[in-house]
Design a protein around this nucleic acid. Sequence first.
DNA 1: CATGAATGAGGATTCATTCAT
DNA 2: TATGAATGAATCCTCATTCAT
Lengths: 194, 194, 194, 194
Amino acid sequence: MAKLQKSIDKRNALVKATIELVNNNGFHATPMSKIAKMANVSPATIYLYFENKQDLVNQTYIDVKAEYTKYAFATYDPKMSVEAGFELIWKRIADFKLKECENAMFLAQCDNTPMIDDQSRQQGIMHLQPLLDLWARGKKEGIIKPMSDYLLYAYSINPLSFLMIIQKRGDFQLDERHLEEAYQSAWSSIKVCQ
Amino acid sequence: MAKLQKSIDKRNALVKATIELVNNNGFHATPMSKIAKMANVSPATIYLYFENKQDLVNQTYIDVKAEYTKYAFATYDPKMSVEAGFELIWKRIADFKLKECENAMFLAQCDNTPMIDDQSRQQGIMHLQPLLDLWARGKKEGIIKPMSDYLLYAYSINPLSFLMIIQKRGDFQLDERHLEEAYQSAWSSIKVCQ
Amino acid sequence: MAKLQKSIDKRNALVKATIELVNNNGFHATPMSKIAKMANVSPATIYLYFENKQDLVNQTYIDVKAEYTKYAFATYDPKMSVEAGFELIWKRIADFKLKECENAMFLAQCDNTPMIDDQSRQQGIMHLQPLLDLWARGKKEGIIKPMSDYLLYAYSINPLSFLMIIQKRGDFQLDERHLEEAYQSAWSSIKVCQ
Amino acid sequence: MAKLQKSIDKRNALVKATIELVNNNGFHATPMSKIAKMANVSPATIYLYFENKQDLVNQTYIDVKAEYTKYAFATYDPKMSVEAGFELIWKRIADFKLKECENAMFLAQCDNTPMIDDQSRQQGIMHLQPLLDLWARGKKEGIIKPMSDYLLYAYSINPLSFLMIIQKRGDFQLDERHLEEAYQSAWSSIKVCQ
DNA sequence: CATGAATGAGGATTCATTCAT
DNA sequence: TATGAATGAATCCTCATTCAT
C-alpha cells in the first residue's frame, strides 16, 4: 500500500505540474521535461503513468473536469426548488471558477483548443447531468425558458469562464456585488419572464 | 503596384493559412513549414513579412480582431435608439461568429490561451468602443443595467463564442429560432426589468 | 564508474572531433551535425555535455590550452638555472607545437579569431605562470632583457606557432638543425648581450 | 568613366565592409546580407563584383596583402646597406601592423584559418620578394644568419602580428620604447653575432 | 548596372520518447 | 518502480544565392 500511495502521489504531482505549466506557458511551450522537473520526477517516469503526452493532457482534463462537477453539485439536493437549486449550483460553480482559478483556467484553455481528444472531451461533459435534470424540471414547471440546454448553458454558466479569465489576467476584479449582479443576469437570461 | 499587390497577397495568404492550421491543429502542431506550404510560399519567405512565429500569430490575431469589430459596427449608426442599436450590433456579431467561424474560432483560441502577447491583446480590444459608448448611453437612459462593461459583455456577447464553438464542433446547430432565443436571453440579461 | 567513464569518453570524443573539424574546415563550415557524426553520437547528445556550439568551442579551447601548458612544464623544475630552464621549456613547447600539431593548430586558429569568448581566453592564459616566473628571475639576474613579458613571448615563443602553421601547410619542413637554429634565434632575441 | 569610377567605389566599399565585419565577428557570423548593408548595397549587387562569398574573401585578402607589401617597401631602396634596409622595412611593417590594424587584423585572421583558398594565399606571398632579396644579400655578406627565410620571417617579422593582436585586444599598449626594444629583438634574432 | 523579393538547402537546437540499469 | 542518458525526428530560423524588373 505504501508503494501504491507513492504512485498516486506521483501521478497527482504530474497532473498538477501539467496544469500549472499549461496555464502559464500554453500547451506549446510545456515540454515533458519541464513537467517532469516540476513534479520532481524523471521524464521516463511520466511514461509509467501515462501513455504519452496526449494521454497525460487528456487525463489531466478529465481529472479537472471531474473535480469541477463534483464541486458544483457537492451541496445540491435534487429535492430543492428549481430556483433555489439553480442558485445553489450557480454559486458553487462561480466559487470554483473564481477561487480555484488554476483548474478553471486549464479547463477554459482545453475547451477552446484542439488540444484534447474528442473522446476525452465527451467523457468530461457526462457529469453535468444533475444540472440538465434541474433544467428539465424547470422547463416542465414553466420556470425555465424552453430552450436548448446549450443555450441555457451559454447564457447562465459559460459567462463565468469569461469573467474568470479576465480576472486572472488582472483586467477586472470581481467583488461580492459583481457576483450578485452576475447571478441576476444569469437568472434573467434563462428564467421565464412572468 | 503589381509588386506591392503581390506582396500583400502573400501576407494575406500566410495569415489565412495560419488561421486555418491553428484552428485545426492548435498553435502547437502548426509548424512554420506547414503554414508556408499552405500559403504556397517558401518557409524563408514568411520571415520577410513577419519577425518570427510569435509575430505571425500576433499580427494574425490583430488582423482578425480588426475584421471582427469592423464587421460588427459596419451598419451601426450611433443615432439609433439603445435597444435598436444593441440588437443591430448583436446580430452582426452573431453573424460574424456563426458564419465566419474560421475567424471567430481563431479568436476564441487566442483569447483563452497564452499564445498571444499581452500587447497585441490590448491592441485587439481597442476597437470595441462604439459598443461601450452605446452601453454608457443605455445606462444613462435607465435601459441598460448599471453594471461593469465586463459583465455586460460576459452575458450578452460572450455566449456567442461558446455557441460558435459547439456548433463548429458539430454538437449543436443553431437555426433562426435559436438565434432569436439567444438574442432574447442576451437582452434579458442586460436590460433593466421595468 | 563504467557509466561515468563512458560519459567522459563521449565528451572527449566530441572535443576531439571539434578540433579536427575546425582545423580542417574552420569554425564556419563545421556544423554540429558533423561533429556529432565524427564522435559517433546523436546531435542531441552534444547538448547533454555542452550548452551550445559556443560553449563547445570554448571548452575545447580551454581543454587544449591546459594540455599545452601541462606539457610545456611537465619536466621543468623551478630550481634550474634560467638558461637551462628556458631551453627546457622552449623545447617542450616546440615539441608540442610541432608534434601535436592538431592541438597547436586549433589554438592558433582560436587565438587569431573572434571565435572564443574573452572569458575563456583569459582562463586559457592563466597557466603560463611558471614561464613568467622564470623570466622574472632572469631579469633580476641580468640574464633576460628587462622587457615586457609580451615582448619576450612574441619573440621567443610565438614564432613557433608560425613555424607550426607553415609546416602543417606543407610549405616547410623543420628538421633538428632548423630547430636548433630556431632555439638560438629565440634565445638571442631575449637574452642580454654581454 | 563616371560609371567605372562608381563601380570601383562599390567594390571598395564591399571589401572594406568585409574586413570590418570579419574582424569584429569572425568569418562565421558575417553574412553576405550584413556586408551588403554595411556597404550600402543590395545583396544581389555583391554578385556583380564577386563570384561568391569565397571569392569576395579571397579578393579582399589579396587586396589587403598587396596594400601591406606596398606599404612595407614604399620607401625602401635596394641600394641601401643590409642593416639600414632591414631596419627601414621592419619599421614600415611595424607601422602598418600597429597603425592600420584593421587591415593587419584581417590578415592575421586569414593566415591562421582555412578561410582562404590556397591559391589566393600563394598569390598573397609573392610580393615579399624585396625582403627575401635583402636577406640573401645579408647572408652573402655574413651579416644575416644563414637560415631558412621562413625562420628569419618567423623571428623578425611575425612577432609583430602577435603584438598587433594583443594590442588590438587591449591587453598591451606599445609605445616608442617598446617598439625600439622589439626592433632590437628582431635584429638580434637574425643577425650574425660577431 | 542595380535591386528587393524570393527561396532551397542547411544549421543550431529542442523534444517526445526509449532503454539499459 | 524509477531513472538519467541517449536519440531521431522535427522545428524554427538563417543564409548564400538567384531572378524578374
